[in-house]
């Protein structure tokens, strides 16, 4: 049994989207078809890079001003805040979050973007944060717009913010998206629809949080992120046994 001490809970592949989801057409040629090789966690996956606050710039957590040239970015000002937890419910400190999004009109600042909505000269669309001791994080941005995308002829993405998350181990690495409470377009989106279980989709919908608005400045949304949990037996015991 000492083989498994401290390893991460097996990923629930029925909670995540499968690779092959034909309504999201790009997945058809990019989905592996063979079974994944199940692997006990080794040290290669139970370790992972850690990023210190020295990587952050002073305005990484404020997308309203971090690329501003002549004034603030245009749009509904919001604070996004929450905690990064593991499946045991523990807050995870020192987690690097990277986020990116379209502007208030739904337009990305990217060479592959083809949507007609205007660029905002004061909005870049990227930000970063590192979680505090209790797993909490916070940033300020504008609410992104919905946008059309080339899939079926009339597919639109609901408003969303993309997140990339580094936990304490490479086994916890996660990329996901945050949606906004009350948006009817969530339930029409083929990318959201890759997630089989409605309760799993609901886990990605941030709640409007009137308790954390900023006076005369910004609305607030609360978004918690859960990374894989870990068996309670200490990793150190395993190493002493070797």
């Amino acid at each position: 049994m000492s083989d498994h001490k401290g390893s991460y809970f097996q990923r629930d592949r029925d909670w995540h989207p499968p690779a092959y989801t034909p309504d999201y057409k790009t997945s058809v040629l990019r989905a592996p078809r063979q079974a994944l090789l199940s692997l006990d966690n080794t040290i290669s996956e139970m370790t992972g890079p850690v990023f210190g606050h020295d990587v952050l710039g002073p305005r990484d957590d404020d997308l309203i001003t971090n690329w501003a040239k002549t004034g603030d970015a245009i749009g509904q000002r919001i604070v996004v805040h929450g905690r990064v937890l593991d499946e045991n419910g523990r807050g995870l400190p020192g987690v690097l979050l990277e986020f990116w999004q379209a502007n208030a009109g739904g337009r990305y600042r990217h060479h592959k973007e083809t949507y007609h909505a205007a660029l905002d000269p004061n909005f870049g669309g990227c930000g970063r944060a590192i979680t505090a001791q209790d797993g909490s994080y916070r940033f300020r941005t504008i609410k992104p717009g919905a946008y059309p995308w080339p899939n079926r002829v009339n597919d639109w993405r609901p408003a969303h913010i993309h997140f990339s998350v580094f936990g304490h181990a490479f086994a916890q690495r996660l990329v996901t998206q945050m949606y906004f409470e009350g948006d009817p377009m969530i339930w029409q989106c083929p990318i959201v629809g890759t997630i089989p279980d409605k309760r799993a989709v609901e886990q990605l919908i941030a709640a409007l949080d009137r308790q954390n608005t900023t006076h005369m400045d910004a609305l607030a949304y609360k978004f918690d992120i859960v990374l894989r949990g870990r068996r309670s037996t200490l990793f150190e015991n395993r190493m002493e046994g070797n």
């Binding site: 629930d12 909670w15 419910g89 592959k112 996901t176 886990q203 990605l204 859960v226």
Partner: peptide
Amino acid sequence: YLKESPSQTAGPYVHIGTNP
């Protein structure tokens, strides 16, 4: 136990967040 947040695709614009 909580459930792990489900994954979503990084999409075509991932570089904005990772390699701006």
